[in-house]
């Protein structure tokens, strides 16, 4: 159970002021401190609500684990035994050489992997491919419930996941995410045929789940590293930038110099060659 840990953010505030680094940009610092304080309060409330909510879901489930699970879990178990058991084992323990253990990955990982179509895998490869989901949203919920109930792990929040500070999200994105996913979430290449996927088609929950669970090669960003509020800020930034227009004309993929160089040669120089050719030719 990771939820109570969320509150460990609270004492950080005092600790941080105790460490007493005199910062010259006082204004911004003060603002961010306020933000953090508010975040802590919000986080605390959220954690309380979540704990309560999860407990109410969990308590009966755990009590009845052996004989009668909830309907959703039962349906999830069926789906699991039909589609997942070959690689992840009958008790989520994983199968050597086929699939990892799902104990402790939580519903976030299930949501990310199944919703983006990465799971079930079509074949063993260095990286699961992003494709249309095999299961319906309802089935995904059932799978999530089953894995959460039997393996435990981080859970996904509900509600508005873009409810965060846009500019702060941008800073966090550039510090933590842009190195792999590019400035604007276009994605990029990783070593030996792996890649960081584009965030263009990712929905809010997918991004949240990815940060929380660290699928495949992506590092995990637990709630003590990036608070839920910070995660929301990042999602807000990613989605805002993805949805905003390009005020300077065609975006050419927003990938910068490579596309621009292509344009100047393919469009610019070609057009001018055509032009001077025409000038040189006789009427």
């Amino acid at each position: 159970m990771s939820i109570p840990n969320t509150q460990s953010d609270a004492p950080l505030d005092e600790a941080e002021s105790a460490s007493g680094n005199p910062v010259r940009r006082a204004r911004a610092r003060r603002r961010s401190k306020q933000r953090r304080r508010m975040a802590n309060v919000a986080g605390l409330l959220l954690a309380l609500v979540l704990t309560g909510a999860t407990y109410s879901v969990f308590a009966p489930a755990q009590a009845a684990e052996d004989d009668n699970e909830s309907a959703a879990e039962a349906a999830g178990r069926q789906l699991y035994e039909h589609s997942c058991i070959t690689c992840h084992g009958s008790n989520l323990q994983g199968v050597e050489g086929r699939g990892p253990s799902l104990i402790g990955v939580g519903e976030a990982a299930v949501y990310f992997q199944v919703h983006t179509g990465r799971m079930p895998l079509t074949r063993q490869s260095s990286q699961g491919l992003d494709k249309p989901a095999v299961f319906s949203d309802e089935e995904i919920d059932q799978l999530m419930a089953y894995v959460q109930a039997n393996g435990g792990g981080p859970t996904l929040p509900s509600g508005d996941l873009r409810d965060g500070d846009l500019a702060a999200g941008g800073e966090l994105f550039r510090l933590n995410c842009a190195s792999c996913h590019n400035f604007v979430g276009e994605g990029g290449a990783l070593s030996s045929g792996k890649w960081a996927p584009s965030l263009r088609d990712a929905n809010d929950r997918t991004i949240y789940a990815a940060m929380l669970s660290g699928p495949e090669n992506m590092p995990v960003f637990g709630d003590n590293q990036l608070t839920p509020e910070q995660k929301r800020s990042i999602i807000n930034y990613v989605q805002t930038v993805a949805e905003q227009a390009d005020p300077g004309g065609a975006g050419v993929g927003r990938i910068g110099p490579v596309a621009e160089g292509l344009v100047i040669w393919v469009v610019g120089i070609s057009a001018l060659m055509f032009g001077i050719f025409w000038m040189g030719s006789k009427a």
Partner: peptide, 19 residues
């Protein structure tokens, strides 16, 4: 054709980078 959309790149910080 939009070129060098600096607002998407963000301000320079030596600890940040983009793919």
């Amino acid at each position: 054709v939009q070129i060098n959309p600096i607002w998407l790149w963000g301000p320079y910080n030596p600890s940040q980078v983009s793919a």
